[in-house]
Design a protein around this nucleic acid. Structure first.
Lengths: 152, 152
DNA sequence: TTTTTAGTTCTGTTAAAAGAGAACTGATAT
DNA sequence: ATATCAGTTCTCTTTTAACAGAACTAAAAA
């Protein structure tokens, strides 16, 4: 299982890591997720990850659990082996998009609440705000449609 | 311009502020943006903002400039008055969606680079990765389409 | 029953983010 | 030319995030 990474792989883990940091992951989580996308072995154990990235046990544990919570990775076990084998859940991207679309509902409700509580004296502003809520609802609905239409 | 906020308004600023913090804004930026969405006066000066939110000058300055950079707010000036009047730029949401869609291009290029550099021994994984890049390209294209179709 | 394994949790450190308050700046008004 | 105004920048403090390393735990093996 000793998974020696090439320089190119290390470089890709860095780039991909940075991108994912900008998407809200902690540095360690971002690199774990990158590793599971780039490593030649698609299923890595806790210690594989720890060693490959030079992380402490606590950092590895927190990163892995964070990614599990976010459903960005999963794990399986093998009979007669109590290690967990972690893997990247790329197939879950559609779900991630779906979730982010559904997450807009709360945001939009808040905007509607803001609009309802606004002074009536700012017609143009309120009209813009109303249009924004309509745009968000539209975008949400259409987005979900296109995700559902993806291949079959 | 002393803009006294009702309790409901303060509450909405808090809720909306928190949501926007989760979207990556600093606490102060989030509240400034919320204030400009909720306040009865749609154009507020630096000091209006500072007073309404109880922020220091530095925090106000940084928050405002941050939001200007992100194009989440704008400002205008009035003849014979050197204050700047800041306002929320809600109409920019479409642009924000557009930008985030266009931002996916770089992400997808990186995924393709990862795929190109992967071992050929993990057929299923590579196939999934390929499909992901195709999905992202599809989603991107369709998303841009629906944004453009909004009230065309 | 004791030991090993595969992690988790706790404690402490370091670094970065966020903001307060005061000093500063550059334009305008007097 | 001096004062004022609208904001900016600097210094310092507080808070939080991220992580290391060691102590701990629960399940399985010996």
């Amino acid at each position: 299982m000793s998974n020696t990474l090439t320089d190119k792989q290390k470089e890709l883990i860095e780039s991909f890591g940075v991108v994912q940091e900008n998407m809200g992951l902690s540095p360690a989580s971002a690199r774990v997720n990158a590793l599971l996308t780039i490593s030649d072995t698609v299923e890595l154990t806790f210690d594989d990850i720890r060693e490959a990235l030079g992380l402490s046990k606590s950092a590895t544990s927190n990163a892995v659990n964070n990614l599990l919570m976010l459903k960005r990775i999963g794990y399986k076990t093998k009979p007669g082996d109590r290690k967990r084998y972690f893997y990247s859940k790329m197939g879950q991207w559609q779900n991630a998009f779906m979730d982010s679309m559904n997450g807009l509902t709360g945001y939009n409700e808040l905007l509607k609440d803001i609009l309802k509580n606004r002074t009536k004296d700012t017609k143009e502003f309120n009209e813009q705000l109303k249009e924004l809520t309509e745009f968000i609802a539209y975008y949400q609905k259409e987005s979900i449609k296109i995700i559902k239409n993806w291949k079959k």
